[in-house]
Computed example of a mutant assay.
Amino acid sequence: MRSLSAFVTPAATPPFLCPSRIYPSRPRQNCALRARLNGEKDPLLQEATNAASLRFQETHRPEPLFVDPYAGCFVHPNVQMDLKKYSHHYCLATKFIDDKLLRTVNHIDGLKQVVLFTDGMDTRPYRLNWPTSTIIFDVSPERVFKVSAEKLQGVGAKIPRSCLYIHVPLESSNIQQSLRNKGFNGLRPSIWAIQGSPVMTLASFEELLFSISSLAMNGSLFLGELPAWLAETEVGIKSGTKKWMEKLFMGNGFRVDVIAYDNIAKNLGKQLAPEDYKNILFVAEQLRFSDGQMETWRRELLRVEEEGDEEGFEEL
């Protein structure tokens, strides 16, 4: 594993907020801002920009759930602002995920591993106060990430000192192996989050969940948002979503809880936007051992058998 000391970066620069002009709001369906990024029509770029626009709006609310000092560099200078009293589901989920990530990594001793499945414009690696010795893996569409990285560099965004940021293209033929090749260690605790990552099919998500289950050490957390249509594809009705989630996650070694957006809003003293939001927010805990843990256990068992170490065998 490469030493983190070799990747020390200068301290983060003061927050950068752009564009500088804020325009009065007008009614817009679903509060989704259709800002363009360099005139591109790429749907992945468009969705990532829409999410950045929501974070930009939230940052400029009188009492924001969070502050994203870099979201503005992704949106059009003439973006329409909507600063109504309601909190958007996406922003509530972002706040929930932010808090859970930081609480978890701050309770991990030594090297801390964070894996983020994103739309390519996630600014968490730059805007959150990560503790020393945190390695952040961003798994996202390569073409969106390249645009994002260029814009973030242009506004002086920096990773916190003594942390390491590694990008893994979502298009990789084997995400599991790509993470290992980049230094992910299945013998160390980790926390995984997904928000905005383009999930194309149920089969592709099941494959992703299998990879996370293989890599994540026992006790690791996986949380985030999934599109509701994944559940509706199989169960057909929303009332079966919770049981569907439990079956899918338990089949891969995770105990999962579905989180209600209105409960988050209530706990934060916010009013939830009155709209139909098509995502499921969840937190899951890994109950199985990772492949790395199983391989270590297997080798230790072979050693004990070869040496005839009865005391060691009993400990195993």
Rank of each mutant, 00 (worst) to 15 (best):
R103M: 10
I191M: 02
G253L: 01
R299M: 07
E58A: 06
P198A: 09
R127M: 06
F145I: 07
N106C: 04
Y90M: 09
T132F: 13
L230E: 00
P125Q: 01
I97G: 01
R26Q: 11
M121K: 15
L170C: 03
D109T: 12
I22E: 04
R180C: 11
G156E: 02
R61F: 03
N30D: 12
Q113G: 03
P15F: 08
L128W: 13
K243C: 10
S239T: 12
V199F: 15
N252D: 00
E307C: 07
E311S: 07
L37W: 13
K100E: 14
L116M: 13
G156M: 07
S213Q: 10
E315M: 06
A216V: 05
C163L: 09
L45I: 09
A35G: 09
V79R: 15
M1D: 13
I191F: 08
P10W: 02
L179V: 08
G312C: 06
D309K: 04
D68S: 03
P141Y: 13
A193I: 04
Q176A: 10
P274A: 04
K85S: 13
L287Y: 00
F313I: 02
L152R: 14
V67A: 09
N181D: 15
M250C: 07
P14E: 03
Q46A: 07
L111N: 05
A52P: 06
Q195M: 15
K238Q: 09
K278V: 12
K95D: 08
Q80W: 12
K112C: 06
V168H: 02
K85L: 13
E285W: 06
K100I: 04
A231Y: 11
P77F: 15
N50W: 01
M121G: 05
N129W: 06
S133T: 09
L116V: 05
S172H: 03
L102W: 03
A51G: 03
R34G: 09
S290A: 05
P19R: 00
T59S: 10
P69S: 08
G154Q: 13
L221P: 07
G292E: 13
Y277P: 07
G240S: 08
I259F: 03
